[in-house]
């Protein structure tokens, strides 16, 4: 029952010693990605696939990511399961490995995930051998369905994408961690290292942070801060810290009769 000293997160047969997942979106300069990865220790990073801008001479973003880091292509832009499946297949065919973050968004106002379409895409892609990490609304029943559909992990959102609101969905995520036999990666809305640490203390298996790092004045420092926060939160979880005590001890009105 002792917690494992050799603490690794295993996903799709790969072992990760670092539990901060990062993203490549919104950086002011793509040359910051590599030093950010190094400073944060992050071993997995998301990329997206888009139609090219004709005439663009931009270099491939993949050249900014060291080979040692696992690519997690996402299906952003997909509005249906079908589109997500197509993007996933293209990503794999073009040599990005078999990890895929499913992100199907039909709500363009708040950018919240469409659980129904996400489930359909998960079923298909898991059967095709993808390591499927679906981005989801925190919903316990849905987490079970994703498990049955063959997902490799579940990625509930902490709060809407880019809001930096932190763990607004805390109590739901807590329940998902309680019931889920799959790793739980808290994705979206994590705006500060303290929020990332809180997610890890709660027992999340990993945290994905993009906007907060990329849009800070110093993404390399911010990456480092998140890396440390995630490690600290994880360590606190493993150390099995006592919970906050929320009621005082009373005299014995309920059990006194047992002693008389």
């Amino acid at each position: 029952m002792a917690k494992n000293d050799n603490d690794v997160l295993v996903l799709g047969g790969k072992s990760f010693t670092n539990r901060l997942l990062t993203g490549t979106g919104k950086f002011s300069s793509r040359s910051l990605i590599s030093p950010m990865l190094e400073a944060s220790g992050s071993q997995m990073i998301t990329v997206a696939l888009r139609r090219v801008d004709m005439g663009s001479k931009d270099e491939n973003i993949l050249t900014f990511i060291p080979d040692t880091v696992t690519l997690l292509p996402n299906t952003s832009g997909a509005r249906t399961a079908k589109e997500a499946i197509r993007i996933a297949r293209i990503a794999r065919e073009s040599g990005c490995g078999n990890f895929i973050k499913i992100e199907v968004i039909t709500d363009m106002q708040y950018l919240l995930p469409d659980n129904q379409e996400t489930l359909k895409a998960t079923e298909v892609l898991a059967k095709e051998g993808f390591v499927v990490l679906p981005y989801m609304m925190p919903d316990i029943t849905f987490a079970r369905q994703l498990h049955d559909a063959g997902a490799a992990a579940v990625m509930p959102l902490g709060s809407p994408i880019g809001t930096n609101l932190g763990l607004e969905m805390k109590s739901m995520i807590k329940r998902i961690i309680e019931i889920s036999s799959l790793p739980v990666v808290v994705d979206a809305g994590i705006g500060r290292p303290s929020q990332a640490a809180q997610a890890m203390e709660m027992g999340a298996d990993a945290v994905l942070v993009n906007t907060a790092i990329a849009t800070s004045a110093d993404p390399v420092r911010a990456g480092k801060a998140f890396g440390m926060a995630v490690a600290a939160g994880r360590m606190a979880y493993l150390a099995d810290m006592a919970d906050e005590q929320d009621f005082a001890e009373a005299s014995s009105p309920l059990t006194g009769f047992l002693r008389s």
């Binding site: 001890e249 009373a250 309920l254 006194g256």
Partner: peptide, 22 residues
């Protein structure tokens, strides 16, 4: 599971009242 074991231990008999309150 381990917490359940702790609460079933002889030592926990000294904490019956706070257990009952909760």
């Amino acid at each position: 599971f381990r917490d359940l074991l702790h609460l079933l231990s002889p030592c926990a008999q000294d904490f019956l009242e706070p257990m009952a309150q909760k």
